[in-house]
């Protein structure tokens, strides 16, 4: 076997391994990318201690922020069940009540989902702001990129 062939086989092995890893690890994770509040409650104690994602709508009127500790509390709902979430950190700018969100963290025995990562899920609808309404300023959207500036 010449050197070119060896190099090719090593390279091919790396690619095949990466694809296989993504298919078996990544895709399996991706298929159940998040649990709904109903599913999480149905799992009960089985879901304890594992790192998982919870997805749904941020329930209107449930969002409270403590600026001192950067703790945010809210409920994630799927229309039938709703789960209280406690998050510490800086949420994405598009995270707000009545919109979709996917949160990463763990389910605790107290029945609270403790999260350290919030992802805002935006819809597939795009339209300009209505008459008199202002679009979010670019600065507000870049805040999550320039963390020092906001503090």
């Amino acid at each position: 076997m010449n050197r070119g062939m060896v190099r090719f086989l090593v390279g091919a092995a790396v690619i095949v391994a990466a694809v296989a890893y993504l298919i078996w690890g990544g895709v399996q994770e991706a298929i159940v990318y998040f649990y709904t509040p109903s599913e999480l409650q149905a799992q009960g104690d089985l879901a304890l201690g594992k790192r998982l994602r919870l997805g749904g709508m941020v329930e209107a009127g449930s969002l409270t922020k403590d600026p001192e500790t950067l703790t945010i509390k809210f409920r994630v709902t799927d229309g039938t069940a709703s789960v209280p979430v406690r998050f510490t950190g800086i949420p994405p700018d598009l995270f707000t009540e009545g919109k979709g969100a996917v949160v990463e963290g763990t389910w605790t025995p107290e029945g609270v989902f403790r999260s350290d990562l919030i992802m805002a899920k935006h819809s597939e609808e795009y339209h300009p702001p209505a008459e008199g309404e202002k679009a979010p300023s670019p600065k507000a959207l870049y805040r999550s990129l320039l963390k020092e500036e906001g503090s």
């Binding site: 895709v27 990318y33 992802m119 999550s144």
Partner: peptide, 22 residues
């Protein structure tokens, strides 16, 4: 990053696109 809050996440769309690239 500015909309979701993350550069990358392993959801089905992103994972299958990474596979496509590979």
């Amino acid at each position: 990053k500015p909309t979701w809050g993350v550069w990358w996440t392993w959801d089905a769309r992103l994972t299958t696109t990474a596979i496509l690239f590979l």
